[in-house]
């Protein structure tokens, strides 16, 4: 399970359509990429799906595993198995890595904490007692956030710009975790404007100015990437629905 359906989703802020009439079915257990230039509405779409308070006043419907979740709060959606990895993870003054991961862990065990840290390439003995604060680098915080998602064992994870602020080694580690999540049946939705990240996906969706303008194979979308998004200007007509 982990099937997500967006039906005619529209978000208006200040009289402007930030997201406009988007319909997508995300097949369970696959890796999907939502791509597009800055300001296309990619991160907003992820935050709408997660149910962030500023993005709850929407038109349309969101279904998860066939059930409507549009009216649910963040934690209720998380309890159903949806989670979000932020582009810039939050810092938690005084909260240890152990406490942070235990809070997320489904089984609340130390073993899960250790395992999750190892999966993101961090030695538990070196990190568990450190605080999730500015003493960690951006890349370390990104990995620790990913570890918290591993510990949670979600059905669907939204990852907003998973490669931002991390070095090559960390990126490769993040990619391997993404595929591990897929192996375990988790649906992964990558929010990105990086061709490298896009290549990790099974399916891709192109957003432009809040509209879905293209769905298709990763290979096809990489070609559009190489055109530095000029295609967005040409694709005036959004596809009514993308079903993969």
């Amino acid at each position: 399970m982990g099937k997500l359906e967006l039906k005619n989703l529209t978000l208006k802020l200040g009289g402007k359509n930030i997201v406009e009439n988007i319909s997508i079915n995300f097949r369970e257990g696959d890796i999907h990429a939502i791509v597009g230039p800055n300001g296309a509405g990619k991160s907003t779409l992820a935050q709408i799906i997660m149910g962030l308070p500023d993005y709850r006043d929407i038109e349309g419907e969101i279904l998860f595993d066939g059930k409507p979740i549009t009216g649910l709060t963040i934690d209720k959606r998380a309890k159903l198995g949806i989670t979000l990895a932020w582009q810039e993870p939050a810092r938690f003054q005084g909260v240890s890595v152990r406490s942070f991961l235990l809070a997320a862990a489904r089984d609340k065990t130390e073993e899960t904490v250790d395992l999750a840290l190892k999966m993101v390439g961090l030695a538990p003995e070196l990190y568990k007692d450190r605080a999730v604060d500015e003493t960690l680098s951006g890349g370390e915080r990104k990995r620790i956030e990913l570890a918290s998602i591993i510990a949670m064992r979600p059905k669907l994870v939204l990852m907003d710009e998973p490669d931002s602020g991390v070095d090559i080694e960390a990126i490769n580690n993040i990619f391997s975790v993404i595929h591990k999540l897929k192996e375990e049946g988790t649906t992964v939705i990558l929010i990105t404007h990086s061709a490298e990240v896009l290549k990790e996906a099974d399916h891709a969706f192109l957003l432009c100015r809040g509209k879905l303008v293209k769905k298709g194979s990763v290979e096809e979308m990489v070609c559009i990437f190489n055109g530095t998004y000029k295609t967005c200007e040409c694709l005036a007509q959004p596809e009514a629905e993308a079903i993969l």
Binding site: M50, L52, T73, I74, D75, R77, A78, K79, I82, T83, L84, W86, P89, A90, R91, F92, Q93, G94, V95, S99, A103, A104, A131, E145, S148, I149, M152
Partner: peptide, 22 residues
Amino acid sequence: QLQTLMSRGLCEEEAVDLILQG
């Protein structure tokens, strides 16, 4: 911070407690 913890399944009260403890 609150939204991050809630997106891991903590209710608002649990999330606030963890942040305050920290």
